[in-house]
Computed example of a mutant assay.
Amino acid sequence: MNTILHITQNDRWTKAKNLETYRSETLDSEGFIHCSTVAQVIGSANRFFKQQQDLVILVIAIDRVTSEIRYEGADSTNLFPHIYGELNIDAVIQSIDLEADLDGSFILPKELISG
């Protein structure tokens, strides 16, 4: 199954499950929900979420997302998936705790390591 990933606060995800839809802050400010591939997610976590706690990675099944997904970036060599609209929660097939090391940086959770 093809998946993309999104990092968020655990309490935001809990609220979204009750509402049956998820909105990130960037949906209102930028028009889309930022996502990553498995290869990109830790770089994104360390760049934008360092020193934060109580984070989860949402594993999203691409074929279940009802909003448009576009792959975009500053250059054509590193395109990030963006969801242009609310995320229907039934597209989220797993949530994985994202915990920081003692220095506040992240490593890829074992659930996302293939092989």
Rank of each mutant, 00 (worst) to 15 (best):
S76N: 06
N10L: 09
I42L: 06
S76K: 13
G31S: 05
A39Q: 12
G73F: 11
W13P: 00
Q53T: 15
I93C: 14
I69R: 05
S105A: 12
S67E: 02
G31F: 10
A39C: 01
C35I: 07
L19E: 04
I60R: 06
G31V: 13
E30V: 08
T77R: 11
V59W: 03
R23K: 14
S67H: 06
N46S: 15
S29Y: 05
L5H: 12
D75Y: 14
E25Q: 06
T14R: 08
F49Y: 15
S24C: 00
S67F: 08
Y22P: 01
Q53K: 13
N2E: 15
G43D: 04
L112I: 05
A91D: 06
Y71P: 00
F48D: 10
K15F: 09
D101T: 14
S24T: 06
S105C: 08
N46V: 10
T3P: 00
L55Q: 11
G31N: 13
E72R: 14
I83R: 07
I7C: 06
H34G: 13
A39Y: 10
R47C: 12
D97I: 15
R70I: 11
E20H: 05
I107C: 02
H82Y: 11
C35V: 10
D28C: 02
M1C: 02
Q53D: 03
N2S: 10
N88D: 12
R47W: 06
Y71A: 03
I60K: 08
I62D: 00
V59Q: 06
N18A: 10
T21W: 04
L108K: 10
M1S: 09
S95M: 09
I83G: 01
D101I: 02
L112R: 02
L55K: 03
I96H: 04
T26A: 15
L19K: 13
Q53C: 03
